[in-house]
Amino acid sequence: MHCPGCGRPSEDCPGCLPAFDPPRYCADCGGWLAVRVSTGGWVARCKIHGETTAAR
């Protein structure tokens, strides 16, 4: 697993994603995510692992 704030392996970073931020890096591979934020949710897309979404 990887830190969604910096993409480093979890053993190197226990989690640095600021409060009120969507993930910036893929939890599976640590790759950069393309993130689309809208009023009611967000969609994060990893080139390898596809989309993760969160809606209220």
């Binding site: 600021p18 009120f20 931020d21 969507p22 993130v35 934020v37 809208s38 009023t39 009611g40 949710g41 967000w42 209220r56």
Partner: peptide, 14 residues
């Protein structure tokens, strides 16, 4: 501004 912002998240709109 209700809900999320441009690249960061806001409070639950409800």
């Amino acid at each position: 501004i209700v809900g999320n912002y441009l690249t960061t998240l806001g409070r639950d709109p409800q």
